[in-house]
Deep mutational scan, measured.
Amino acid sequence: TFYNFIMGFQNDNTPFGILAEHVSEDKAFPRLEERHQVIRAYVMSNYTDHQLIETTNRAISLYMANL
């Protein structure tokens, strides 16, 4: 899942690491979701930090390219 992918960046001092920290603390994050459209919609609806949203979009693109 995307959640498992992004958790691989925990403790990294990178934008993906920052995203992983936010996702791990977000109890409502769709952890079992595999459809990138649902993940993107969730982030757009629940996150207000523009940098975090952009990082999510980049992470989703990388995740999709590696499926």
Rank of each mutant, 00 (worst) to 15 (best):
H22Q: 07
N4M: 11
F9T: 00
G8L: 12
F2Q: 00
F16D: 01
V43F: 07
T48C: 08
G17W: 05
E34W: 15
N4W: 11
M44R: 07
L19Y: 02
I39A: 01
T48R: 09
E54I: 09
P15E: 14
H36R: 05
Y3R: 01
S61I: 14
Y63Q: 04
L32S: 12
V38D: 05
N11I: 05
E25Q: 15
L62H: 06
A65M: 12
A41R: 10
V23R: 02
L67W: 08
V38Q: 08
S45D: 13
Q10H: 12
Y63K: 01
I6H: 00
E34C: 14
A28M: 13
F16R: 01
V38M: 10
G17S: 08
L52Q: 02
L32P: 04
E33F: 04
R31S: 05
Y47Q: 02
I18L: 12
N46C: 07
E25A: 15
F29H: 05
I6N: 00
A59I: 07
D49F: 08
L32H: 13
T1Y: 06
M7V: 06
D26N: 03
K27C: 09
Q51N: 13
F5E: 00
F16C: 06
R58N: 09
I6G: 00
N46F: 08
R35E: 08
F2D: 01
R58Y: 09
I6P: 00
I39P: 00
D12M: 12
G8H: 12
E33S: 06
F29D: 01
L62N: 04
M64P: 01
D26T: 05
S61R: 13
Y42Q: 00
F5Q: 00
F29I: 07
F2I: 05
D26R: 07
Y47H: 01
F5D: 00
M7K: 05
E33G: 03
H50L: 13
A28D: 13
L62A: 09
A41D: 14
R35W: 05
H36K: 04
E54M: 10
N66F: 15
E33I: 04
M7N: 02
E25W: 10
Y42K: 01
E21C: 11
V23H: 04
H36F: 13
Y47K: 01
F2C: 04
A41S: 10
T48E: 10
D26W: 02
A65L: 13
Y42G: 00
P30E: 02
Q51G: 11
L67R: 12
N57V: 11
I39R: 00
N13A: 10
F2P: 00
Q51T: 13
L62C: 11
G17D: 02
E21W: 14
Q37C: 13
T56Y: 13
Q37R: 08
Y3W: 07
M64K: 09
K27N: 10
E54R: 09
L52K: 02
V23K: 02
D26L: 05
S24Q: 12
L52W: 05
F29K: 00
K27P: 14
E34Y: 15
R40L: 15
V43H: 02
N57H: 12
E34D: 13
T14L: 02
P15I: 07
A59N: 02
L67Q: 13
N66Y: 15
H50W: 13
I53M: 07
H36W: 15
L32Y: 14
M7Y: 03
R31M: 06
V38F: 09
F2R: 00
R35L: 06
F5W: 12
L32G: 12
I60D: 00
S61H: 12
F29C: 03
A59W: 05
N11R: 08
G8D: 07
Y42P: 00
E34G: 13
I60V: 06
E25V: 11
A28V: 06
Q37F: 10
I39E: 00
F5L: 01
H22D: 03
T48Y: 08
Q37K: 07
R35T: 06
R31F: 06
P15D: 13
M64N: 07
F16K: 01
N57L: 15
M64V: 13
T14E: 03
K27A: 12
G8E: 09
N46L: 06
M7S: 04
T55A: 11
R35D: 15
R58E: 08
A59L: 11
N13F: 06
N13S: 08
G8V: 08
T14Y: 03
N57R: 09
V38A: 11
P15Q: 09
Y3C: 02
L62F: 06
R31A: 05
T1K: 05
N13R: 09
R40N: 05
I6V: 07
E21I: 14
D49I: 06
A20Y: 06
A20P: 01
N13Y: 06
A20N: 01
F16N: 01
H22E: 04
Y42A: 02
R58I: 10
I53H: 06
E33L: 03
M44D: 08
R31L: 06
T56F: 15
T14M: 03
V43A: 06
G8T: 14
T56I: 14
N57D: 12
A65V: 10
E54G: 05
S45K: 12
G8M: 13
A59Q: 02
I60E: 01
V43E: 00
N57F: 14
Y63W: 15
I39L: 05
I6Q: 00
E34Q: 14
F2G: 00
N4T: 11
I53P: 01
H50R: 12
V43N: 00
P15G: 07
I53A: 05
A41V: 08
F2L: 05
G17P: 03
E25Y: 10
I60C: 04
Q10S: 10
R40V: 13
F9S: 01
H50A: 14
A20M: 04
D49T: 06
Y42M: 04
D26F: 07
F5N: 00
Y3M: 01
E54A: 09
A65C: 11
T55Y: 10
N4F: 09
T14I: 03
I60F: 05
R40W: 15
K27E: 12
D12N: 09
A28K: 12
L19K: 00
T56V: 14
E34R: 14
E33H: 04
V23Y: 05
S45V: 07
H22M: 09
G8S: 14
T55W: 08
F5P: 00
H50Q: 13
T14R: 03
V38Y: 09
A59Y: 06
P15A: 12
H50M: 13
I53W: 09
L19R: 00
V43Y: 03
P15Y: 08
T1E: 03
D26C: 04
F9E: 00
D12Y: 10
L62P: 00
Y63S: 02
R31W: 06
F2T: 01
T56E: 04
E54Y: 07
E54S: 08
T55E: 05
V23T: 02
F9D: 00
Y3N: 00
R40D: 03
K27L: 11
V38W: 07
E25R: 15
T1A: 07
P15H: 09
A65N: 10
R35A: 08
Q10Y: 15
I60L: 15
D12L: 11
R40E: 08
L32T: 12
A65H: 10
A20F: 06
A28Y: 14
E21M: 15
M44Y: 11
I39D: 01
